[in-house]
């Protein structure tokens, strides 16, 4: 049994030193806790609301309506001939998830500093929790995408098979950014103030409101380094069909993975001082 196995375990606690990687074995041992925390986040989010989970749909829906009126009808941004509602819906749904997950993950340690100082469990559970909890909202809000696609009679193409990859990236990227920002935020509370601005910056730099084809050719590579560009562009190509513009997708995938891997190292290195600098 579990307990007797643990009985033999001997932990040696030493002063921290050097770089290390996240202890995934330990994380697995705490999977029940992770599950309960994710489930708590989900349950608590819409506690004492009238509309409950409908907010998961309403939130992106209202954004889509606003964007469509302002950027589609008034500013008349180019969308490569795609109806603006369709064009923005496909981007806004994953974008809503990503910005939300990024925001919550980066605040996760500061928000739980009370718990941080009182009980030990793998610290990485803190930024993972909001990233996973948000996926339920995302799955519910997929309804909007399906509805809009049916309305515009968009036929799924073979591109659809790549969608899970981009959904995976959609979860991974906020996780990676959350790792960096949460460990920075606990030491420098500036992150909290910078987050608003960063998220706004990201929504304008990512092709959420406009088409990536509007970006001048010479800046394309630089532009595509943003992992969010890769995810949004991936979603559009998967759902709407058409040729793959790998120049817009591959660089972002690479930076996305780099952010996650470096974030794991950085988080591990910083996690030992979290409690001392609260």
């Amino acid at each position: 049994m579990e307990v007797s196995e643990l009985k033999m375990s001997t932990a040696v606690i030493k002063p921290p030193g050097g770089w290390g990687f996240i202890d995934f074995k330990e994380l697995v041992a705490y999977r029940d806790l992770l599950r309960f925390l994710v489930w708590r986040d989900i349950k608590v989010l819409y506690a004492q609301t009238i509309l409950g989970l409908s907010w998961a749909v309403l939130n992106p829906l209202i954004q889509i309506v606003i964007f469509t009126i302002i950027f589609g009808n008034i500013a008349k941004l180019s969308t490569d001939g795609i109806p603006y509602v369709l064009f923005s819906t496909i981007a806004v749904v994953p974008w809503t998830y990503m910005s939300d997950a990024m925001n919550k993950a980066s605040q996760s340690l500061v928000a739980s500093q009370n718990m941080l100082g009182k009980v030990y469990f793998p610290r990485i559970i803190f930024p993972i929790t909001p990233v996973l909890a948000g996926t339920l909202d995302f799955l519910i809000s997929l309804v909007i995408i399906v509805a809009v696609m049916i309305y515009f009679e968009v036929m799924p193409t073979i591109n659809m098979v790549a969608l899970p990859l981009f959904m995976f990236m959609m979860v991974l990227v906020p996780f990676g950014i959350g790792l960096w920002l949460s460990s920075l935020a606990i030491r420098y509370r500036d992150v909290k103030f910078a987050m608003n601005f960063v998220i706004r910056l990201l929504i304008y730099t990512a092709p959420v409101l406009y088409s990536a084809s509007a970006v001048p050719e010479q800046y394309k590579l630089l532009y595509a380094l943003n992992p969010i560009v890769s995810v949004i562009q991936g979603f559009r190509t998967c759902l709407l069909g058409g040729p793959w513009d790998l120049e817009l997708i591959v660089p972002g995938l690479i930076t996305g993975i780099l952010v996650v891997v470096s974030g794991l190292f950085y988080f591990k290195r910083m996690e030992r001082v979290f409690v001392d600098v609260i």
Binding site: V12, K14, P15, L116, V275
Partner: peptide
Amino acid sequence: ITPPTIGTMT
């Protein structure tokens, strides 16, 4: 919850 600065605990 927090590591020692010097020393070892088993």
